[in-house]
Amino acid sequence: MTTVSITARPLLGRRRTRNPLVIGLVRHAVLIAVLLVMLYPVVWMVAASFRPTAEVMNSLGLLSRNYTLDNYRNGWSAGQLDFSRYFLNSIAITALSIAGNLFACSLTAYAFARLEFPLKRVLFGLLLGTMLLPYHVTLVPQYILFNELAWMNTYLPLVVPKWLGAEAFFIFLMVQFIRTLPRELDDAARIDGCGHWRTFSRIVIPLSLPAIGTTALFTFINSWNDFLGPLLYLNRPELWTVSLGLNSFLDVTGESAYGSLFAMSTLALAPIVGFFLVAQKLLIEGVATTGLK
């Protein structure tokens, strides 16, 4: 059944089907097609990680006659140490980074969103401006700084900036979110005798969970995937993160171990997928309410 919509969309001048089943089918077909295109490389990698080394690069297909777990066995113990160490290191850095970002960004955001202080606008402008500076511009001065502080071969260069609110993007995200919270709640809290700390911890933080979830998730992804930072500051293999461990499978000037690389990449993806599944609800709420695109 089709109807001509005259009143609703006179400008379009086209017949539009209103049948929800047809619309639903088409929409899902398109979504599934796009999903397949986007997922195929990942699925291929997972499939390749189960093929014997000689067959890893052989085909664009997924199937093989001889599946094996060798890539996982060899990959896990490859390199100068094994991947359990790299995973532990990555987890430690990531956990400290998330804690740092949540601590520093929420406090800073509260200040910018709720407090009045001199030069607030200039400081906020500066904060936003730092997002315009590409990472590479500050890379060398940063490297010199951390080197002078004798922080080479420690996790400090990767973690300390997070505790000092160096990630302007997340501060901005939280400021925007806190601004949407009704000020009346603050006023009510003040009448009840709350100072800033209590307003922050009892009112703003519980209401900001979506923004906090978003910050935690993106910090997780960024720290977990970070390659350049660990590459520059962590030389000793016992400090290596998963991304550095993965890099050691590659060697364009010699022999690469692609089977092991794919196997370990699959494992390295697992925490991100898991974290995303757990935090999905918060994330989507955060995206919807902070206008993050």
Partner: peptide
Amino acid sequence: ALACAALLVAGCNGT
């Protein structure tokens, strides 16, 4: 303007 100036200083120094 102030923010841009500060950024320029920060960006150009030391590299």
